[in-house]
């Protein structure tokens, strides 16, 4: 089952700006997905459509194996924590839980209370008087108490201090370990998701640029380093994501490279997730997407990007 399935999904705002353009994406069940991309890439647009707050201009979108986003069935199984938690500031924490419980088809009040008690968040305090980190934790406790199949977190860490970020991520990862739910995070800061996620989606300029299992992506990409004058000969015929040259040395990120064929004087190394994402983001013309039926990966535009 795919928890999110988008086919040629487009969203155009009234001003005529395309936030998403023909985005196609399939996210399998049980993953912790990092949705990354620069500001304005369409991350929030995609997520607001997944939770049913916005409707696509064209294309298809389904959640949790074919449910229509925003339908009662989908709302009952998709939980959402918005960028700024968007809770009612004048409600107490207890009343916030009661309100959410009264609006949810499934609700585990004891679970929410236990989470908040563990974090020393007083139930009688008004939400508006809590710190940003505590508000995020209340929103997360509400989301988890709804026993969702899919948890959507839109830039959850953006306004939190480092300690609060750590605690928030710890809560999410504990819930993933216990309940096996699928999680989609969005962020423009990859470093904070790197340890948590096992699936990566990179959005750039309204399109999906990279999508795949993190381990597979890392094993498929290699960094070749060698003398600059040989670079053209070495990279001919390879899938080059990004090449950086100085006068003497060339560093090339390549994909689907056979490490047995490393030429003399060159070195092949594995890359890390942050470098990989940055390389793609700096080279918007290149993408790495799952193939249609065969499962093979295809290079949409195997052009070399030279950045002297």
């Amino acid at each position: 089952m795919n928890v999110i399935e988008a086919r040629r999904l487009s969203k155009r705002y009234r001003r005529g700006v395309w936030a998403l353009r023909e985005a196609t994406l399939a996210i399998p069940e049980g993953r912790v997905v990092a949705l990354v991309g620069p500001n304005g890439a369409g991350k929030s647009t995609l997520l607001t459509m997944v939770v049913g707050l916005a409707v696509p201009t064209s294309g298809e979108l389904a959640v949790l194996g074919g449910l229509v986003p925003g339908s009662v069935e989908a709302l009952g199984r998709v939980a959402f924590v918005a960028q700024d938690p968007s809770l009612y500031p004048n409600l107490s924490v207890a009343d916030t839980l009661r309100l959410a419980g009264n609006l949810s088809s499934r609700w585990d009040e004891a679970d929410a209370r236990a989470r908040l008690a563990a974090l020393d968040i007083p139930l009688r305090r008004k939400v508006g008087q809590l710190s940003g980190g505590q508000q995020a934790q209340v929103a997360l406790a509400v989301a988890l108490a709804r026993r969702p199949g899919l948890l959507i977190l839109d830039e959850p860490l953006a306004s939190l201090d480092p300690l609060a970020r750590h605690e928030f991520m710890a809560t999410v990862m504990a819930a993933v370990a216990e309940e096996g739910l699928s999680v989609v995070f969005s962020s423009h800061v990859l470093a904070e998701l790197e340890r948590a996620c096992d699936y990566l989606v990179v959005l750039a300029r309204g399109a999906v640029q990279v999508a795949g299992d993190v381990d597979e992506l890392l094993s498929e990409h290699s960094v070749l380093t060698g003398p600059a004058e040989q670079a053209d000969a070495v990279t001919a015929g390879l899938c080059v994501v990004r090449e950086q040259r100085t006068d003497r040395q060339s560093t090339v990120l390549v994909r689907d490279y056979d490490p047995v064929r490393v030429p003399a004087g060159w070195r092949a190394e594995r890359t890390n997730l942050e470098e990989l994402v940055l390389a793609y983001l700096r080279t918007p013309s290149v993408s790495a997407l799952p193939g249609p039926a065969s499962g093979n990966r295809t290079m949409a535009a195997p052009l070399r990007a030279v950045d002297a």
Partner: peptide, 18 residues
């Protein structure tokens, strides 16, 4: 105005029911 619709309308009831 306050953005709380993102909370209220993504719980288990549709906007129409709400």
């Amino acid at each position: 105005d306050t953005g709380t619709y993102r909370f209220a309308w993504t719980l288990g009831r549709t906007r129409l029911q709400w």
